[in-house]
Amino acid sequence: MPDRFRTAGRSLAAAVLAAALTTGGLAAPAPAEAAVSRAELALRWAPIHYQDVDATGSHALGGRSDYITSVDFDGDLNGRNNWDSAASSGASFAAHAYYSVSETSTHWYITYLFFHPRDWTDHPFFETEHENDGEGIMFAVERDGSTYGVLRGAVSVAHSDFYSYTPAGSTWTGGRENVDGTLQTQSSPHDSFAHPVTAQEAQGHGLKAYPQYNINGDGIVYYPSTVAETPSNGNDRDVRYKLVDIFASGGLWAQRANANLFANLGTFAGDNSGDCGVGTFSCSTNSANAPWGWDDGNDLPGRGEIATDSAKLAVEYFSIPGSLSRAYTYNPYASAAAALREAARTAPPVVD
């Protein structure tokens, strides 16, 4: 079970965040690329995350429905009881986020997933709710010889649409898709780095680069870390979240065939039990996705390729000077790539 209470002290003791100089939020070049683990890489580029919170209405649970947490926040891996479990006194809202890393000789691609037990609304008409919610972002990092590389571009998931961003000074520009904005960076009080900044709306939890979504009234600012803190309330502006490897032993990827957690390829299982949909238009079922199920149906990359073939997505979304290898030196999704492509081709669309 994840930690339920705030860990005392604010210093991040992890050795992975040793002091380093940064320039405009982008890692300064070094003569030769130093060895860095994928966990270190994911922690360095993990976003500072602004989460808007709405405490109104019974489905808000006083704001807790907008807190990020782990998929087993209720002590099990059953996706069909999460709506009800969120209201339980035993539910843990210790902050977690999931990540995966793939590599080519020229770039790293890091995907982050933020999970909520409820996608909810307090509107009485024309809007649906559903159990479970998974949205996130992929960062493309050029291997420029420095320890952590240089951030070049990002693509975020907001419901059934993708949005692309570049940080200030990036050499990448719009490709088949226009760049939707600038990816800002911000210093963290818990390490020596400037991190990209993302934000999620309340209720539906679409994710974009800050401040395209922002905190409106109450909200939580989450900082990447190796510990999981629980917000003290819905207006806590300093909460650390713990990164969890999607490919950890027994982790999210290992559970992909668990019918209690996933209804089909990359789609979380969720039903319409409890009060989901009560007082609004409806409660839809099996309506949230893991990264290998994310899709923008209007764009060329296939379902899940934002995570499973990030280099392909980068080429489609951006104009990229210099070299970009499409040959992976490490891609944990690759062993199932053919099955993923076939299943994605035949799977029914899932609209978040």
Rank of each mutant, 00 (worst) to 15 (best):
L151V: 06
L151C: 04
S156A: 13
V157T: 12
V157R: 14
S160W: 02
F162V: 10
F162H: 11
Y163Q: 11
S164H: 06
T166P: 10
T166L: 06
A168G: 14
S170Y: 04
G175I: 13
R176Y: 15
N178S: 15
V179S: 04
V179F: 01
T182I: 14
L183I: 11
T185D: 07
Q186W: 14
S188N: 07
S188D: 01
P189A: 04
H190C: 03
H190V: 00
D191Q: 08
S192C: 00
F193E: 03
F193G: 02
A194F: 14
P196S: 03
Q200I: 08
Q200S: 12
Q200H: 06
Q200L: 10
A202K: 06
A202V: 08
A202G: 11
A202P: 08
A202F: 09
H205Y: 04
P211C: 02
P211N: 10
Q212E: 13
Y213I: 11
D218A: 14
D218N: 13
G219T: 07
V221S: 00
Y223R: 06
P224M: 05
P224H: 02
P224F: 03
T226I: 13
P231K: 02
S232L: 03
R237Q: 06
R237C: 02
R237F: 15
Y241E: 12
L243D: 04
D245V: 10
D245Q: 05
A248Y: 06
A248Q: 11
G250Q: 00
A254M: 01
Q255S: 13
